[in-house]
């Protein structure tokens, strides 16, 4: 039951994100959507991911977005400045794809639950021990990927400084 509540909230908030002209409101609705997703992660027995989602996504990345929105003070989106022409054939292909995807989604939902058995929650590590298990897997099996990630962050940091700084 909670799943449908959080899911509906996430979808509604995401729709509001792209339905807003004001980027400030978009950012705020995205935060609401993240909160709903964090609730879903708790339902999926992943409390650590839920908390990380709030701390890093909502608490750090989105503050960065807000910061830029405030800094640029970029007001409403202008729609009429540049017209984008879409060829009719492109539209037809797009419409076809929409129909195909919707049909697929409907089919998947219609046949759902026939052969799906979740692994029971008993054998899984929960709460704090799930954090421990996460740490062990991350630093043993994924140690190389973890180290590469640090290089990625370093490069991103350098790139951000070089791009945004007026003169070096």
């Amino acid at each position: 039951m909670l799943f449908y509540l959080f899911g509906a909230a996430a979808v509604a908030a995401s729709l509001m994100v792209i339905g807003q002209r004001n980027p400030m409101y978009s950012v705020l609705f995205l935060i609401a959507s993240f909160a709903a997703l964090a609730g879903l992660y708790v339902l999926l027995d992943a409390p650590f991911v839920a908390v990380i989602q709030i701390i890093i996504y909502a608490g750090a990345i989105m503050v960065l977005f807000l910061f830029v929105v405030m800094l640029l003070n970029a007001p409403q989106e202008d729609i009429s400045r540049v017209r984008v022409m879409v060829a009719p054939s492109t539209r037809r292909i797009g419409a076809l794809l929409v129909v195909v995807l919707l049909a697929e989604l409907a089919w998947a939902l219609a046949t759902a639950g026939e052969r799906e058995v979740w692994v029971s929650a008993e054998g899984l590590p929960e709460g704090e021990s799930s954090v421990r298990a996460l740490g062990l897997t991350l630093f043993r099996d994924y140690a190389f990927a973890f180290e590469v990630t640090s290089v990625l962050i370093l490069v991103a940091m350098l790139g951000a400084v070089v791009l945004a700084k007026r003169e070096l």
Binding site: I56, Y57, A60, F65, L152, M157, A160, L163, A164
Partner: peptide, 13 residues
């Protein structure tokens, strides 16, 4: 999430 953070930093710059 790490990639998203890097992407946001570079994208916003």
């Amino acid at each position: 999430i790490t990639v998203a953070a890097a992407e946001a930093a570079v994208g916003l710059a």
